[in-house]
Amino acid sequence: MKPIYSALSIAILLHPAFAQADSEAAKNSTAAKAITSISELVKSKGLLHIEIVPEKALIRVKGQSFQDYSKCLNETAEGEISKNIGELIESALESDESITLQISGNSNIPSTKNTTIESDCTASDDEYSLSYMRASSVRRALNLSSDFDIDTVGNGADELLNEDDPSSPENSRVDIQFIAEPQY
């Protein structure tokens, strides 16, 4: 039985040995094939809300997929995720028990709060809660089986892509990454 991840998994991400496991997942042929397939799909279908970051072997749901301070995916982004990449990710997880999935939400720091969000899409002013809720929205859109151990985390605005402009939409994103489980 696979271990169930807890809040401890966040601390493990900071440990150098875990970084090597992360690197091993990128080399894992199943994960690499899934990333390649998703990359080809993104290009062939012209998916606007999904990009591949090959040097990190991750799938990124772009910040434009969410309104400021909204935890909900817009309709187009949700469709791109659920109809295009969910099955490919699930197939990879089914075929290789040595990999799991981490879904990491990241927030920008909006210069003004958007007050026109539907009430069921609003989230906390707390960037960590917001980023976790966004990661959870992507996880739901992937529609993956509950049989898989999937680590869902919220990084808040701790990992800005554009540090010069913390309110930049590119800082608000959800990253999906295959993680190689440590082999004991």
Rank of each mutant, 00 (worst) to 15 (best):
residue 36 T to Q: 12
residue 38 I to P: 01
residue 38 I to K: 04
residue 39 S to I: 11
residue 40 E to I: 09
residue 42 V to M: 03
residue 43 K to C: 01
residue 44 S to P: 02
residue 45 K to T: 02
residue 45 K to P: 05
residue 48 L to E: 08
residue 52 I to T: 12
residue 54 P to N: 12
residue 54 P to R: 11
residue 55 E to R: 15
residue 55 E to H: 15
residue 58 L to Y: 09
residue 58 L to C: 13
residue 59 I to M: 06
residue 61 V to G: 03
residue 61 V to D: 13
residue 63 G to I: 04
residue 63 G to F: 07
residue 64 Q to G: 07
residue 65 S to R: 11
residue 65 S to P: 06
residue 69 Y to T: 12
residue 69 Y to G: 06
residue 69 Y to Q: 07
residue 70 S to H: 08
residue 73 L to I: 05
residue 73 L to D: 05
residue 75 E to L: 13
residue 75 E to S: 14
residue 76 T to H: 04
residue 77 A to D: 04
residue 77 A to M: 06
residue 78 E to M: 11
residue 78 E to D: 12
residue 79 G to Y: 12
residue 82 S to K: 13
residue 89 I to S: 00
residue 90 E to A: 10
residue 91 S to N: 13
residue 93 L to Q: 02
residue 94 E to T: 07
residue 95 S to A: 13
residue 97 E to G: 05
residue 99 I to R: 00
residue 100 T to K: 03
residue 103 I to A: 00
residue 105 G to M: 05
residue 105 G to R: 08
residue 105 G to T: 09
residue 106 N to Q: 15
residue 111 S to Y: 12
residue 112 T to E: 15
residue 113 K to M: 12
residue 114 N to Q: 04
residue 114 N to F: 02
residue 117 I to T: 03
residue 118 E to T: 10
residue 118 E to V: 09
residue 119 S to L: 07
residue 122 T to L: 10
residue 123 A to I: 06
residue 123 A to T: 15
residue 127 E to H: 14
residue 127 E to P: 13
residue 128 Y to C: 06
residue 130 L to H: 12
residue 130 L to N: 10
residue 131 S to I: 06
residue 131 S to L: 11
residue 131 S to N: 12
residue 132 Y to A: 10
residue 133 M to R: 09
residue 133 M to D: 15
residue 134 R to V: 11
residue 136 S to A: 14
residue 137 S to D: 05
residue 139 R to M: 10
residue 139 R to E: 09
residue 140 R to F: 02
residue 140 R to A: 14
residue 142 L to C: 00
residue 146 S to N: 07
residue 148 F to G: 05
residue 149 D to L: 03
residue 151 D to H: 04
residue 151 D to I: 00
residue 152 T to K: 00
residue 152 T to G: 00
residue 153 V to E: 07
residue 153 V to K: 09
residue 153 V to L: 14
residue 157 A to N: 13
residue 158 D to Q: 15
residue 159 E to C: 12
residue 161 L to E: 12
residue 161 L to Y: 11
residue 163 E to L: 06
residue 163 E to T: 05
residue 168 S to D: 15
residue 168 S to K: 09
residue 171 N to E: 01
residue 171 N to C: 00
residue 171 N to Q: 01
residue 172 S to Y: 09
residue 173 R to S: 14
residue 175 D to L: 08
residue 178 F to T: 04
residue 179 I to M: 14
